[in-house]
Design a binder for these strands. Structure first.
Lengths: 249, 249
DNA sequence: GCATAGCGTTCCACAATGCGGCATGCTACT
DNA sequence: AGTAGCATGCCGCATTGTGGAACGCTATGC
């Protein structure tokens, strides 16, 4: 059950996305594959409408617009997305910190789906599409805290990878932290994943209480003031609640 | 140069996107392909991370978050996207009409990449990822008007498909219309493509004057008042100019 | 409680399919 | 003119994906 050509084509597509606009030769160097193989793949992807030649240099390839019609269920019709946008901007205006909207991907991790930037010279950066672990991020914990016990166990069952001093790697400790998250309504990440990056996050739920996404305010360590935490947490949680309400309406 | 399995896999991916969460059986009925073929394709796409099983019903498939990392060049790093967002919301607030951001796709047509809805009960609807023809839409004309002569000829060379009474199908007439668009700074579509749908659009340009995208206010025929056109056009053009300025900054 | 229908999944022999080394033609420097 | 690097075209071989058929399961109906 392999479908080598399909697997390879998708990896080529991802490579084009990262390096666009890119030439055949550059891709052969990235993959170490024969030129004819890469070339054939590109032509096929182009015929399918997923790739197109750059308008200025027709030997360079870039991603076609077809991909935009293919989006995760949580964003279909973009109702969650649209519901989140204005509250996110207001939250950014209130805090002047970068705000992220992330969705869980099959319990593998959180994926950033939208972002509103702050205007500080020093700011955190996560591109749309970036993934991060559930157990070591504020957004991940916010979602995790509102899953069923069986699902929490599923995640805490495997080894919890550590990313530094602060990462919670003990399943028991993580479960205790998730309880606190549930009680106070927001999750906090203080250097648990990326060094120097902190975040405060709250979940967006559907009608049945299942977490669909998380809103997070992400800021550098240097601006993180523990005293302001209750206030920030409250604002983030209110924003998440507003998105939940708008999304259901 | 065919790569049948790749082409089919991508079509399956698109079908999953449209019907998610979807089962193997439903897909076999859509495509009329053998079950084993569809099944194999799904497993392969899943292994590549582009598909995942639904959490509640594990025999249903949906789009994975991996696709979000694959975006057209114009949206990479989402700077255009981010630059457009707030001006679009302000324009929506000013007009209370649905605002679209569209990018041209290899001179094939315009693709909707973002949307801000109005709150009228009667409103136009275009999903993100939808495509429409360059010669019969306001967004298309806005972009077309700012392309080089050779590119305009390229588009006006083929037959211009008609979609109703109002569509401009004569290349000469279209070129004249594009001149007017350039002069007044915005394009207008009055029932030229979809019946009952009108729009006013203006282009977002890069540093060299090449059109990257178009902002459009889209409204039902019933609310279209020719008297207000200069005012609406001015507001749309100002919004596009602001997005251009923010994007360059 | 047995029969049936429909589902997702697995298996396997066949041959169609994509593979990749090689050759070509192009453009751009030197 | 010569060379280097590029994208692209060709074609025989064997690897690869194909799809019919069989399996096991669950739900529905008699």
């Amino acid at each position: 059950m392999e479908m080598k050509s399909v697997t390879r084509s998708l990896r080529v597509l991802e490579a084009v996305a990262r390096h666009q606009p890119v030439t055949v030769g550059e891709l052969t160097r990235i993959f170490g594959l024969p030129k004819s193989t890469v070339q054939r793949t590109l032509v096929t992807l182009n015929e399918a409408g997923w790739l197109r030649a750059n308008r200025k240099d027709t030997t360079r390839w870039e991603i076609g617009a077809r991909v935009l019609a293919v989006r995760p269920a949580a964003l279909q019709g973009s109702s969650l997305f649209a519901a989140a946008r204005e509250p996110m901007i207001r939250l950014r205006d209130a805090l002047n910190e970068t705000i992220h909207l992330s969705v869980p991907d099959a319990l593998q991790g959180m994926v950033v789906v939208d972002r509103v930037d702050c205007d500080h010279a020093v700011r955190t950066y996560h591109a749309i599409g970036d993934t991060s672990p559930l157990h070591a991020t504020a957004a991940g914990n916010a979602v995790l805290a509102h899953l069923g016990k069986s699902e929490i166990d599923e995640v805490t069952a495997g080894t919890l990878e550590g990313y530094g001093e602060e990462t919670i790697t003990d399943p028991g400790q993580l479960r205790a932290e998730l309880c606190r998250v549930r009680e106070r309504g927001y999750a906090v990440n203080h250097n648990q994943y990326l060094q120097g990056v902190c975040a405060i996050a709250a979940p967006v739920l559907d009608g049945e209480g299942t977490p669909l996404a998380a809103v997070a305010a992400s800021l550098p360590d240097s601006r993180f003031e523990p005293v302001r935490l209750p206030e920030l947490g409250r604002l983030v949680a209110e924003t998440a609640a507003e998105i939940t309400a708008r999304h259901l309406a």
